[in-house]
Simulated scan of single mutants.
Amino acid sequence: MMARILIAFAIVYLILALLLGLHMGLIADYRLGVVYAHFIALGWLSLGLVAILYLNYPELTGGIFAWAHFWLYLIGLPLMLIGLTMTQLDAFATGHALAMIGAVAMLLGVIALGINCWVNLPPRDRDRDRALTSQP
């Protein structure tokens, strides 16, 4: 379930990024290019990759670290994007503070993801790896 939700959010961020890019192109104002890049990198790509990780290793989705990552990242990312948008549209002080709050939340979420992977990923199967890499 968590992986499907992350995939849905990743797709929403991709759509929003493409709409923002289209808007910037139509009005020929590219001040929000940094926001567009963050939509793609932190929304579409990062959420999509974590969703693939969760699909391949469902044992990562059940614990407190998975939920901490999920909520901190999904709350932090829009805060950061809104803050970045504000900094580019001449509301720097407020936008910067909001972006930093979002970035710290996301960082804590990614630390939770790292701990989750460290604790819950299955050990490497050396025999399988050896069989895959040894070619006659």
Rank of each mutant, 00 (worst) to 15 (best):
A131S: 11
A10Y: 02
Y30N: 12
W118L: 01
I11K: 06
A8I: 09
A10D: 03
L45A: 13
A105I: 04
P136L: 10
N120T: 01
L81C: 12
L53I: 11
G21A: 06
G33T: 12
R128A: 14
G21N: 07
I27S: 06
A10I: 08
G95N: 09
C117H: 01
P136G: 10
V110Y: 08
P123L: 09
M24N: 00
L55E: 09
L16I: 05
L14C: 10
F9N: 05
G25Q: 03
M100P: 06
L98I: 13
G62M: 02
I27V: 15
L6H: 05
L19C: 13
M86Q: 14
Y57D: 00
L89M: 13
D29G: 05
A51H: 09
V35K: 00
D90E: 14
L20H: 04
W71M: 06
Q88R: 14
T85R: 08
L79E: 01
M106C: 14
G114L: 07
S134A: 13
G21R: 07
I64M: 13
D90Q: 14
L45F: 14
A8Y: 10
W44R: 04
L77G: 03
G102E: 00
A37I: 05
N116T: 02
I82V: 15
N56K: 14
D127M: 09
M1T: 12
C117T: 07
G62S: 05
I40N: 07
I27Y: 04
L72T: 02
T87S: 13
L49A: 12
L55S: 11
L113S: 02
P123M: 03
L89E: 11
L89A: 08
I115F: 02
S134V: 15
I82W: 11
L19N: 08
L55R: 11
A93W: 09
A10K: 05
W67T: 03
L22S: 13
L72M: 08
F9A: 12
L77A: 01
C117G: 08
L108M: 11
A17T: 10
R4L: 12
M100V: 15
G33L: 15
P78A: 05
L89T: 15
H38R: 01
I115A: 00
N56T: 10
A3P: 15
M24K: 02
E59C: 06
V50F: 09
C117M: 15
A37V: 04
L32Q: 00
I15E: 01
A93L: 11
